[in-house]
């Protein structure tokens, strides 16, 4: 890229050919200095980002050290400083630790599964014929397009205890197989959405189902960009499919995987809508993750916004640390 902008360059050009321009059109009055234009263009964006993202981020950091209850929300009393009390309280709370565990374990499993399934499907799409691959892409597009709340609703219905398709399908298994695998033969009335572990199992399926299409389509786009000669060379050398994948495909797609991993981590770490629907609101405290725990602390009576803020800070710090590594890589490789 050149160091001068189109507009700046024009400034020079005008100086060199003033006569022509004056003949074409009347001279404009007060002109903004060229250097100020980008800053002026950025003003609305900066105001929005500053006021709606950065300033609240600072505020939440401050509120984590304050007591903000009903009285303070209504503005009758100013928020009082309580030091690290909010943090001490949530660290003493069992729910916080189970929420932290749920968040991390869920993110690790969901991100890995999504990446594995998505990559496998992307590789498959690349091998399929043109018509078949379009057909499958349109199909997976539907899963990708479903809004998170509707995702939760759909899978809640599929896993419904009485009329759910999953229990019906499990009942189809021959009794001996079902007993050998799960120690039971009938699945009717199996309540999948009562215990924390089974809620998370359903949540993992839901999230993987909804997010693998994006990975698959991105991997496919990456694969189509790899020159075919590389694969031909590998074939000539008698390389196995597995080896070809790890020696050619994976290294070339590494930047793609880096971005996909960050995005998946960001999305899965703070999953809210699907979990909210699957749990039926913030009712089952053992199944909370950090997002829902923060929401429940701050917005269910009695509102404890200070401790909600403290949880949000913990969530943000974890997210920033986890993604910082990848962001650095992104900044490095991308010519911004």
């Amino acid at each position: 890229m050149t160091n001068t902008s189109t507009l700046a360059r024009d400034g020079g050009r005008r100086a060199s050919a003033p006569g022509r321009r004056r003949a074409d059109r009347p001279v404009r009055r007060t002109r903004l200095p060229v250097w100020s234009i980008p800053y002026i263009l950025l003003i609305p964006g900066l105001v929005v980002i500053g006021a709606l993202l950065l300033y609240p981020m600072v505020q939440v950091g401050i509120m984590a050290f304050q007591k903000v209850g009903l009285v303070q929300i209504s503005g009758k009393k100013p928020a009082t400083w309580v030091g690290t009390e909010n943090f001490e309280k949530i660290f003493d709370n069992e729910i916080f630790w189970s929420a932290l565990r749920n968040t991390v374990v869920f993110a690790v499993i969901a991100v890995s599964l999504t990446l594995i399934v998505g990559t496998a499907v992307g590789v498959l799409l690349n091998k399929l014929g043109r018509k078949m691959s379009t057909f499958v892409v349109v199909g997976i597009m539907f899963a990708w397009a479903v809004p998170p709340v509707a995702q939760g609703i759909i899978w809640r219905w599929l896993f419904d205890a009485e009329a759910g398709v999953i229990n019906w399908a499990l009942n189809l298994l021959p009794d001996w197989l079902s007993s050998a695998l799960f120690g039971r033969a009938t699945w009717t009335d199996e309540p999948w959405l009562n215990d924390a572990w089974s809620i998370y199992m359903v949540l993992i399926i839901t999230v993987v189902w909804a997010s693998f299409p994006f990975i698959a389509v991105s991997v496919l786009a990456g694969l189509r960009g790899i020159p075919a000669e590389l694969y031909e060379a590998a074939k000539v050398d008698g390389s196995s499919a597995w080896r070809t994948f790890w020696k050619i495909t994976f290294p070339l797609l590494k930047p793609v995987f880096a971005v996909l991993t960050v995005l998946s981590i960001i999305w899965d770490f703070k999953v809210f809508s699907q979990l909210y629907v699957l749990m039926g609101g913030p009712a089952n405290r053992e199944a909370f993750n950090l997002s829902i725990f923060s929401y429940a602390e701050a917005f269910r009576s009695p509102p404890k916004m200070g401790s909600g803020a403290a949880i949000a800070v913990v969530l943000t710090v974890i997210l920033l640390v986890v993604t910082a590594v990848y962001v650095r890589q992104l900044v490095k490789q991308e010519e911004m």
Partner: peptide, 24 residues
Amino acid sequence: TGFLIVLLIAQMIPSEALLIPLFL
């Protein structure tokens, strides 16, 4: 470059963290 980095960081901020201050 600073602005671009702010953009990246802004995308990393979980909206859940902004919920309480924005609500107020």
